[in-house]
Simulated scan of single mutants.
Amino acid sequence: MSILRFSDDLYLIDLPQKLEGFRKFIGAWVYAGEECTFVVDPGPKSTIPHLVASLRDIGIRDVDYVLITHIHIDHAGGLGEFLRHFENAEVLVNERGKEHLINPEKLWRGSLKVLGKVAEHYGRIDPVPPERFVDSIDGIEVLYTPGHAVHHQSYIVGDYLFVGEAFGVTHEVWDDVYQRPATPPKFVHEIAMSSVKKLKSVGKKKACMGHFGMLENSLDVAEYAEKQLNLWTDAVFDAICCSSVDDFESVCRDVVHELLNKDPRFSNLEKLDADVRKREEYFTRNSIKGMYEYVKENRL
């Protein structure tokens, strides 16, 4: 079932890819309240037909706003195509990301460089007309939360906290939750930690994750994200110091081994389905890479 209903006004639409393990990974949040209807992160271009069809199935014919947590291709790559289907929808995004959605060529080249064939599966990024953007929306509080990206922001709407990837990535397992940081290069520990603390100061909300699903207690997720940022960064530092060669792949293997023993939520990696686990192993490497570069530049 690709449409998950959490309440009378909130849905999550799963946007699976034809890639191994890319299910319950990319999702678009849909809020259909009395005051307005909005979508958070419409996803890549390849899944826009599925998203539009799912909105029709819910009964949504018009969208007032699109909220973008950050402009990475899996979150906002399909925005231009999505807006063709909803001609009245306006877009809220951090100012540092807006220019790259208006002129996405650099964003597309960067996506290809980092993700390669995965980016090709996601689909090319189409430009967004500059007149579609707004600076604010009544009833929606914006929090600037860099760390995963310099243009990352989160949104508070009532009891809902749309956090993008500020808390990392989560996935339900049968008796617990899998959680890992989302810290690609260029990662700065102090900036990411500051954003987690800012979201923690909001108080208890329902954490609507960019990847994937809802966790009822945002304070719990934030506290664990804090622990992980420290634990993982320290593990990378220790692995570099103990390594006999200056080799990222060797450090990465040592860090993963260490964390599987010391990080209970990350150790739930072994409880994931084989295809999802393979996906997470791929992105875990990217998260460690960000911390590796940070440690090499700032702590050695």
Rank of each mutant, 00 (worst) to 15 (best):
L55R: 08
I13N: 06
D238M: 03
E190M: 06
N217Y: 14
H72E: 05
D74H: 13
F248V: 00
E34I: 13
I71T: 13
H148F: 11
I60E: 11
S287A: 12
H211A: 10
D273T: 07
L229R: 11
E20Y: 02
L199W: 03
S194Y: 08
L4F: 15
D176H: 08
D247P: 00
G203K: 06
E34D: 15
V40P: 03
P146Q: 06
M214D: 02
C252P: 01
P130R: 14
P49S: 04
G290H: 01
K278V: 01
L272C: 06
E165F: 09
R285M: 08
M193T: 10
Q17S: 07
Y122D: 01
K186W: 08
T284Q: 11
S287G: 14
D159P: 09
V236Q: 07
V128M: 07
Q179N: 12
V196Y: 11
E131T: 05
I288D: 00
D62N: 13
G203T: 07
Y224S: 10
S54W: 14
A182R: 07
L215S: 05
G147W: 01
K278Q: 03
I125N: 04
G168T: 04
I71S: 07
I48S: 04
R253D: 00
A166E: 05
W232Y: 10
F82I: 07
K24G: 15
I102P: 03
E249T: 03
Q228P: 00
E280I: 05
Y178G: 01
G59K: 08
L229D: 01
Y122E: 08
N230R: 11
E165G: 01
V142Y: 00
Y292I: 10
W108H: 13
V169E: 14
A222G: 12
V256M: 03
C208A: 13
Q17H: 12
M193V: 13
V30T: 12
A89K: 09
T37V: 15
C36I: 14
K200A: 11
G210Y: 09
T233H: 07
K117Y: 08
D41N: 15
K106A: 15
S250Q: 09
S267W: 03
L10G: 05
S2Q: 12
L51D: 00
F133D: 04
K205T: 03
T170C: 06
Y160A: 03
P264W: 08
E131K: 08
K198N: 04
S195F: 10
V40W: 00
Y160L: 12
L19E: 08
L15V: 09
L260T: 05
E223Q: 13
S250I: 09
A222I: 10
S111G: 15
K186A: 05
V134D: 05
D275I: 01
R124S: 06
H152N: 01
F22M: 11
V188W: 07
P104D: 12
Y11M: 10
H189D: 07
C241S: 11
W108I: 06
V188T: 12
V118N: 05
E81I: 07
I191L: 13
Q179L: 14
L259M: 04
P42K: 05
L19R: 07
R132S: 01
E99C: 15
V255E: 01
D247M: 00
E281Y: 01
P264R: 12
Q228V: 04
F248A: 02
G27W: 04
R56S: 15
R56K: 15
D176S: 13
G110M: 14
F283M: 04
Y282G: 02
L112D: 09
V245R: 09
